[in-house]
């Protein structure tokens, strides 16, 4: 048998062995057997001494080719086997991905806070400042400077927690109108502010009444503010909080600190304006009070009503939340049942 034939046979046998090897250890053994120092190829090459000088390079090249083939086959087999081992390992590691994820501790903002934040962000974007005032107020700011002198009948509309004759729990965030107007320097620009906060009324708590609730006051005073601006602003607010499909309508009302005074209704969200139980078949739901700031309020705060004027509004985040989410009992907001607090988490 010629050396070349020997080598060819060697290749056949080698490739078969490699193919037969069943694990990495096997592959290694085959490698040592075939390509090792005592292996057949080495042996064959040793036999080259006996060949002609002319034959030698040809056989040498052929031997190298075979060595390369075998090496490649070994590498490939090794990779195949490694992959199989890895696959087996991964198969063993398979888990039930339908088991629940590990719980994480996560807190949520209060639903009222979410609404207040939303209102704040809206008005910040329109150039308003956010101001907060004292919850324990003077009668002067809560009532008198809001054009509600002592004995004014409308004081009955707001049953008040008094601390002394002159000190009370604020019944509205409106006193911030007076406090801000007193301080504002109109030479620096118009006054545009909202004032969110907690207010108190002398009420017995029940599903629709709470002795503590929230209000956001809004106030814009400049030289050329119109009632149309008020209407537009309230429309923007309704669209932001409820969606673009909601319309706003104004109705006459009465507040001592605004003239004209209006209530604003928005399209009933339950029926979309068709009329249902929620809106008492009117298609509208009352959401806030507003108006053009009464000249007396400006005067008392030292602002000239012949030069400056504007609008004010007061919205109730509690009422908004009740309407928007169908909350049927206002006390839920202040009793802090965790199952209630964690319902308003959808942010997408």
């Amino acid at each position: 048998m010629s050396l070349k034939d020997k080598l060819s046979e060697l290749r056949q046998r080698g490739l078969a062995d490699i193919k037969k090897s069943s694990d990495l250890k096997d592959v290694n053994q085959v490698r040592v057997q075939l390509l090792g120092k005592k292996g057949p190829i080495t042996e064959v090459l040793r036999g080259m001494r006996d060949l002609d000088a002319e034959e030698r390079p040809k056989v040498g090249a052929f031997a190298n080719e075979i060595r390369d083939d075998l090496t490649a086959a070994l590498t490939q087999r090794k990779e195949e086997l490694e992959q199989a081992v890895l696959n087996a390992q991964l198969a063993k590691e398979t888990i039930d991905v339908t088991l629940p994820g590990t719980p994480v501790a996560k807190g949520e903002p209060h639903v009222i806070q979410q609404i207040v934040d939303q209102i704040e962000d809206l008005f910040l974007g329109m150039g308003y400042q956010v101001l907060s005032g004292p919850e324990v107020e003077e009668d002067k700011y809560n009532f008198e400077m809001m054009n509600l002198p002592k004995n004014h009948p409308a004081r009955d509309m707001q049953d008040t927690f008094y601390i002394t004759k002159e000190i009370l729990m604020r019944t509205q965030t409106s006193p911030m109108q007076a406090r801000t107007l007193e301080k504002h320097d109109f030479s620096k620009g118009p006054l545009k502010m909202i004032s969110p906060g907690v207010v108190y009324r002398r009420d017995t708590d029940d599903p629709t009444h709470s002795h503590q609730f929230h209000q956001v006051e809004g106030l814009v005073i400049d030289k050329h503010i119109t009632m149309a601006d008020l209407k537009g602003t309230l429309q923007v607010l309704a669209h932001e909080l409820f969606g673009d499909k909601f319309d706003v309508r104004l109705r006459p009302s009465y507040f001592p600190f605004t003239e004209p005074s209006v209530e604003a209704d928005i399209t009933c969200f339950n029926c979309g304006g068709k009329g249902c139980k929620v809106c008492k078949n009117t298609g509208w739901i009352e959401v806030l009070g507003a108006g053009m700031v009464h000249p007396n309020v400006l005067k008392m705060a030292g602002v000239d009503p012949d030069v400056y004027g504007g609008f004010a509004f007061g919205v109730g985040p509690d009422r908004f939340a009740m309407l928007k989410y169908g909350v049927d009992d206002i006390r839920n907001f202040y009793l802090n049942d965790v199952r209630f607090l964690t319902q308003f988490t959808k942010k997408g």
Binding site: P190, D222, I225, A228, K231, G232
Partner: peptide, 11 residues
Amino acid sequence: LPATLPTGRMT
């Protein structure tokens, strides 16, 4: 009434 937004000096 028309619906507009306040104009005037920026704040």
